[in-house]
Design a protein around this nucleic acid. Sequence first.
RNA 1: UGACCUGUGGUGUAAUUGGCAACACGUAAGAUUCUGGUUCUUGAAUUCCAGGUUCGAGUCCUGGCAGGUCAACCA
Length: 560
Amino acid sequence: MKESENTSTNFIKQIIDSDIESGKHETTYTRFPPEPNGFLHIGHAKAICLNFGIKASYNGKCNLRFDDTNPVKEEDTYVESIKKDVAWLGFEWNNLCYASDYFDQLYQWAEMLIQKGKAYVDEQSGEDISKQRTTPQEPGIESPYRNRPQEESLRLFREMKEGKHKDGSMVLRAKIDMTSPNMHLRDPIMYRILKKSHHRTGNKWKIYPNYDFAHGQSDYIEGITHSLCTLEFEVHRPLYDWFLDQIADPGKTRPRQIEFARLNLTYTIMSKRKLLELVEGKYVNGWDDPRIPTISGLRRRGYTPASIRLFSDRVGIAKRENTIDVGLLEWAVREDLNKISQRRLAVMDPLKVVITNYPENKSEELEAINNPEDLSAGKRTMPFSRELYIEQKDFMMDPPRKFYRLGPGREVRLRYGYFITCNDVIQDENGNVKELHCTYDPETKGGKSPDGRKVKGTIHWVSKPHAVPVEIRLYDRLFSVENPSDVPEGGDFKDNINPDSLVVNTALAEPSVKKIPPETHIQFERNGYFYVDPDTTDDNMVINETVPLRDSWSKKSKKK
RNA sequence: UGACCUGUGGUGUAAUUGGCAACACGUAAGAUUCUGGUUCUUGAAUUCCAGGUUCGAGUCCUGGCAGGUCAACCA
């Protein structure tokens, strides 16, 4: 986890530093507080890395807390997937908490506020309450129930708790300021009636606190020092502080809310609503589809925890709106995968090659290095024989300048194999290249030429009789535009879906690939990084493309 | 338009708090290489605008401009 430790500073760390320097806090206590109503995505990963990264930097603590105050949207399956994702990212929480653990305490505080004349039961409809709040530009109108006797509010609130009133018939409101320019201070709702079973408290409660009456208090109860959240909660901060003013003991640690900008990525979407739409509309295959930016999707695509932490570190923390180029995410995986993944050879689009001077029934094992970046990964052997496959695009009938690969009369090196020279090109009646006849130089075994002769190109290959077919799933960006949400009037973000975001192919791989277990990262040399999908069965190996290798040749040739 | 927040290379993030604008990704050129990968070297490119204070402003002041957030019994 070293790479996520503070290599750079940010405004939150500066606040923490000064809090420690001034003696306000000795160390930090942060928390990651998702609502268990969906799957985590890369945007959450940024928040997770921030909160747990601070824990690491300051030798502090960090909780995982489920903000489960709305039983109509929350489920246990989400709790489990969130726990799994946070752990997978490599973080350990100090305490596993639930806002629902604090329902009793929250209720007591609510009664206290009523008794202090700072809260009242409002029997108006939601529509009326909303109307009275008016607009930010003009003062709101006070509810006719606002100044009812405290005893009456208390009686009604207890009845709400006992289930004596219908959903929506009344709410508990904080009595703050109906003229405030901040809408959240115009007598916000603290409790609503919801006769719905809760994933943890079952049917015990008929009323549930709203976010604003639960979040700050939960932070306070847990002893959180710095409560980090995204920018849209900025306007909630005065309310966060107002509730704390009412309940906090001056001798106890009081949390401070600090907001930072959420993550946006090009060519994808991060909104839970839109992600849900893609999954439910079957535009993608579930929450772990490798094309969406959920943690589970990235995991299945072949992203590593280290790569996501590295990405998150490079993205930084600030208050201004930002859109990160997906290229940075791709760079981060390559960076990690280059170091850890074993190399293998596989041909995506085969072209047959016959080595005319190689004996008909002979085959031999050639030695290959598993990972040139990590020699401890050892070696393996690859079978070589008279008939091979090479990549279609590694041969050109009429090669342009700077094309280093195979062409009529040219010599190239087969990776870990021999030098071969192309003598004959077999074409069909339409001029399509069907087969190449080459000769090999037995002296160049292993790829070295004793006479010091150099070849510019090295290409990958597999032995035709030994090659194993594998299913390759090639993924491209899900959307064809940088900002999929930017649509003209009447348009829909789904109009921007890239129809070719998933292409399924069969590749021919060297036989050792068959032995690689599911959920392993590999590199197919000169091609890309891949991940063995859990869909793999005994007779069908499924391999996902995580990200292609950088390719300066195709970039260059495209330009010309 | 009310309140609040934010404007630094193409994209992000820094700048010891008033002292030579830097780091990463991307990009260009070159070197290395049994992966056109990796690695290495070098280059191009930046403080929203207008005034002001100051020996000196990305940083402070004034006034603009631009973008964002807020009007669920969601979080």
